[in-house]
Every structure is written in structure tokens, then in C-alpha cells.
Design a protein around this nucleic acid. Sequence first.
DNA 1: GCCAACGTTGGC
DNA 2: GCCAACGTTGGC
Length: 135
Amino acid sequence: MNYWLIKSEPNTYSWDDLVAKGTDHWDGVRNYAARNNMKAMKVGDLAFFYHSVKEKAIVGIAECVKEYYPDPTTDDDRWVVVDFSPKQKLEKPVTLEDIKADDRLQDMDFLRLSRLSVQSVKKEEFDIILEKSQS
DNA sequence: GCCAACGTTGGC
DNA sequence: GCCAACGTTGGC
């Protein structure tokens, strides 16, 4: 079981959009590092859903329900998508500020590689953030 | 709205 | 295959 973080601008695609759809593919990734992460995802893996730009907060947890397959939105066979379903909404969003303020989370890819749209999260980091969402 | 970071493109 | 130019993302 692995943990991930996926980012989206809520204006383009929000947590509520995923909830409304039930299950949806995560398309539009055009970055090799992000794609490689998607290829590594397994069914049952969990991903934080982060709203960038305006909210700058993790708002929910999505579960990978289908492993990677070719991106239906392009003919270019380099790109793939995975399917997600909403798993649970966080009681309280965990903001970028919250993450920056926690000494234990300073090494996250999230802080170092702010532009990577699909990134991996360590189990310890996942647990810490989950804990923050409940306090 | 600005600008830094960084990934991608394209000329050589 | 290198590297400069360019475009995009996303925090501030």
C-alpha cells in the first residue's frame, strides 16, 4: 500500500467534482515524473486531494480504484490516467501553512517540489497529516 | 499581478 | 546531447 498526493485547481476540478462523479479518471497529466508516479499506483492506494492556488489545503482522501491505462483525452500514447473514487473528506482541511509549520514534514516532496502534480507521500507523513485533519 | 522554479522544446 | 529560450504552475 502506497500513499500519494494529487493536486488540482478547484476551479478546474475540485474534490466536490470527484464526489459528484463517484469515480473518475485523473487526466491531463503531462509531466513525466507525475506520470511515473501514476504508473506506480495500485488499487487501494490512498491519495490526498489538494486544492492549489486559492485554498492551498488538503481537503480529502481519494482511493485508487483502477490502475493506469492510456489517457483517453489524447492520442499521444506516452500519457496515462488512473481512476479515483472519493474515500473520505477530511474533518478539517490541512493547509499548506499547517504543513510548513510542522517540523516533521519539512522533507516532503510537497514542499520541495511544489509544482509536481502527482507525488508520493510517506506513510509517516500521511499519518501526521491525517492526525492534523482530526484535531 | 508578479516572479521564482522548473519542465519542455528546439536549434545547433 | 547540450543548453538557451520559453511556457506553465503556483505561492506570495
